[in-house]
Design a binder for these strands. Structure first.
Lengths: 177, 177
DNA sequence: TATTGTTATACTCTATAACTATA
DNA sequence: TATAGTTATAGAGTATAACAATA
């Protein structure tokens, strides 16, 4: 992996004249920052998206702790509920998680009596995953709570804005095929 | 294939019996999922935001590897460049990272000749962080590359849509004070 | 030969406790 | 007493390699 550093760059550099503003350009003095300027970062989709994701997760984690579900476990349970017989492989492909990291999660959900494995009709290597009877109404409550937490985390957005936001986000991560 | 609305209750298409006799292999209980239904997850802002963030990072990582910068390091450098004299504490507050996890990063950036510490004018506990002369034009290139990668990662969005997206995301994570 | 699920393991990222020197 | 920066370390999250059973 080639690393570029300003000190070992093979190309000749322009003189390091970057003085756009006198306040920021003087390199020798000791300055105090009163208000942090984040204007550039706020022009980056990646920065904004990551910050928003962290803010929502910060709301999700304590709110869903009553169900003992973290975001990925919740997603896994929902997919199993909405897709009875889904395989581990399908879960991994859908949620972008690696098979070894799913094994422990499924084991835990089984141990909690929420999920069970059954034979796959066509493929004896695979196993179908199913939500157990007890998990159904319970997951329904969890969904309700999750949705409420989402709305709380985005309470400055109107319903229309929420839809717009999700449409635009999907344009990003669904454009990868 | 029947489409399920996210507000509908998730009903597995199986009778409410959990004990399956091996002798009577009912074909209803073992199912095959052809197409994974993610409709409920796609109604969640948290899910969409996290997936989009991962997609952009997946573009960012290899693209910025030439600069030896991962997302957080890039953000730190940008903030130091745009806020000469910023302290570690201010960086942590702004980027939501914990002080112990910043120490190693700053050390590395110093070792690479990109950043230097100077005494804080008012507070002898703190240290001001500054981009070294050589880092300026170099970081300018990095910014240019980062912006190009962003546009590439969101190439299905128009300029207007990008602005809308960022405005909506900021409404989420800036609404936390 | 390729794929599903699994184990073991390594690596990265994030979090906690405790210390020092200053305020 | 509180804060800035640091150290050490623990924990969570993510990654790779290799294997058995099956396709």
């Amino acid at each position: 992996m080639p690393e570029r550093s300003p000190t070992d760059s093979p190309r000749p550099r322009r003189p390091a004249k970057t003085s756009t503003s006198a306040a920021k350009a003087a390199p020798v003095v000791e300055q105090v920052v009163e208000q942090v300027d984040t204007s550039y970062l706020e022009t980056l989709i990646g920065y904004n998206t990551r910050r928003a994701a962290l803010a929502i997760i910060a709301e999700f984690l304590p709110g869903m702790a009553a169900f003992g579900l973290r975001p990925v476990e919740f997603s896994v349970l929902v997919l199993i509920a909405d897709n009875p017989g889904i395989t581990a492989r399908q879960l991994c492909d859908t949620l972008d998680i690696l098979p070894p990291n799913l094994v422990g999660m499924i084991k835990d959900l089984e141990k909690r009596g929420l999920v069970e494995k059954r034979n796959h009709p066509n493929d004896r290597r695979a196993q179908g995953l199913y939500l157990r009877e007890a998990g159904n109404t319970w997951l329904q409550e969890a969904r309700q709570t999750a949705t409420e937490l989402e709305i709380k985390a985005s309470n400055r957005l109107s319903t229309t804005e929420r839809k717009t936001l999700m449409r635009l986000l999907q344009k990003i991560y669904l454009s990868e095929q």
